[in-house]
Amino acid sequence: MDTTTAPRTLVDSRGSSCPGPITDLALAYRRSKVGDVIELWATDPGVRPDVQAWAAKTGNEIVSMEDRDGKIVVVLRIAKR
């Protein structure tokens, strides 16, 4: 499915460092289904390696990861549940 048209869940984790953005991502994953797109916003730089490890473990896809307007924006596509 095209990530621009798929249902997109915005997860705003800015300001969160403990337990951290991965908490919010795991929660969104629990509620997701295959084909969903999750857009995660974070300010904790630890989110980069964590999301990569998470995607590798869960078999989901990182569509993009970039710094934008003072935050880290990660777009993920749920490929496996």
């Binding site: 460092s17 403990c18 337990p19 951290g20 991965i22 908490t23 795991a26 630890g46 964590d50 998470w54």
Partner: peptide, 12 residues
């Protein structure tokens, strides 16, 4: 744990 490691915040 659902996190990538035992304590979610890496320094801890």
């Amino acid at each position: 744990t659902p996190y990538p490691r035992a304590y979610p915040a890496k320094p801890m």
